[in-house]
Design a protein around this nucleic acid. Sequence first.
DNA 1: CTTGTAGCAGAACAATCGTTCTGGTACTGG
DNA 2: CCAGTACCAGAACGATTGTTCTGCTACAAG
Lengths: 198, 198
Amino acid sequence: MPRPSSFTVDEMRDRALRVFWRRGYGATSMGDLVSMAGLNRQAIYASFGGKRDLYLSCFERYQDTIVTPAFAPVEGPGRGLDAIRAYFAYQIDAADRLDLRGYGCFVANATAEIAPHDAAVRAHVAQHRARLTGGFAGALRQAAGSGPAGEAASVAPLAETLFVFATGLWTVARVESDGDRLRSSVGALLDMVEGRLS
Amino acid sequence: MPRPSSFTVDEMRDRALRVFWRRGYGATSMGDLVSMAGLNRQAIYASFGGKRDLYLSCFERYQDTIVTPAFAPVEGPGRGLDAIRAYFAYQIDAADRLDLRGYGCFVANATAEIAPHDAAVRAHVAQHRARLTGGFAGALRQAAGSGPAGEAASVAPLAETLFVFATGLWTVARVESDGDRLRSSVGALLDMVEGRLS
DNA sequence: CTTGTAGCAGAACAATCGTTCTGGTACTGG
DNA sequence: CCAGTACCAGAACGATTGTTCTGCTACAAG
């Protein structure tokens, strides 16, 4: 019987995700993944196929392990403006706590860097965008109640605005290590949204 | 006497800017700059030093020829909320008109892709951020008048929010060719800001 | 038209990239 | 303890990268 692998496939994805998340696709070499993430060259090719396949796998891993835990409250029952506030707070806190300052959002980084030249990445980005705008729209509708502000046509542009803001926030987070500056602009936006709904 | 150059230095910067703007730093090779931008290899090294130096030069060229014309009204006299609206409209229109769809903002792209690993780029990004937040803050103060909403401490978080939103808008523009979707979220945000100030 | 200067195109270069290959090794089942 | 399997580390490979080098060429001055 063979020797067992050092890492499971998901452990490899987690480790590679960290490097791609921080350095992006172009600036990450296979050598970086070996030396920084501690992965085995051969294992990457055996388990994923190559660098790009690994990157795509890390994209899905990011959605499952980072986006979903943070964003699920916005999508679940009892959601509202507080759930949206909690989403932003959760992600900013996590960056502070887990030493993820300067990482930003994997999806936002991918949108700026390679989505324009890579159809598969672009498709993942579009799916992420639809998910977040949909979640925001649902939470806004819930927060506005059954009045005129709660109609779908009314919350859609607001949800889009929240998504655009979120994308910008995580991009700014790439060069901003002070979480409080991020929290300040989040607060300013959500206070305005709250005023608009009530 | 020698043969004159095909391009002036600024023409070379303009041509290289287009390629870097669209493809980013990592995905742009010197061969791309030769074949896509029509530049001469030797001329690049003679005039700029190398790939990174050319990129940095294009960064400044972008600020001078793209950011300044669009953002100057926000910084000038008589500025207000309309000037901010005009800035967003001008940039979205320019992308439609000049076939710049999918380009986004050179600075936002640089923020996501390489600012974290390159101190010189990071410094340029920080300067750009200070300029835009400062301009937004001044226009907001003007728009709010001398009431309590016009105090510096009050408009600062709002200006930061506008900058974060703008960064996100141009990042989303990398994968969104429909200018109307961008205009819609701009309108939703600025309507809220207007409500907050009055 | 001649001359001389510097710009230009493409070859050549070393370094680095993603990928593949090879031998030794660690581990499980019997 | 033994044997066999597949994992691991590092060398090796071709392709591509940024950069430099080499003639040739186009053009302005005389």
